[in-house]
């Protein structure tokens, strides 16, 4: 079971979180014309990298904040966690 550091609450067990997918995907702006290829990429296309991956988790049984987690998908190592407003380099 992963041990995830919520930037608001500290280290908590994985069972308090729910997974939210790739954090680097940007939703096209609302009220703007979006080329259908861009839209399809946003809705359907995701990379499934082996290695470092920045993803979203929600601290659902805690502060309910969505957070960013940089995790190695092969080893589960977590390098960094951050608020969604912060950048992970």
């Amino acid at each position: 079971m992963l041990y995830i550091k919520c930037p608001y609450c500290g280290l908590r067990a994985q069972k308090e979180f729910s997974y939210g997918g790739d954090a680097t995907v940007k939703r096209p702006n609302i009220n703007e014309e979006v080329p259908s290829e861009d839209w399809d990429n946003f809705v359907y296309m995701r990379k499934s990298p082996r290695g470092k991956h920045i993803e979203l988790w929600q601290h659902i049984a805690g502060c309910r904040q969505w957070i960013k987690v940089q995790r190695d998908t092969a080893t589960h190592e977590i390098f960094q966690t951050a608020k969604v407003t912060e950048e992970i380099r």
Partner: peptide, 13 residues
Amino acid sequence: LSHLEYYLQIVWP
């Protein structure tokens, strides 16, 4: 609820 929180926290803060 999670869906609304997602849009408020991430997409349209």
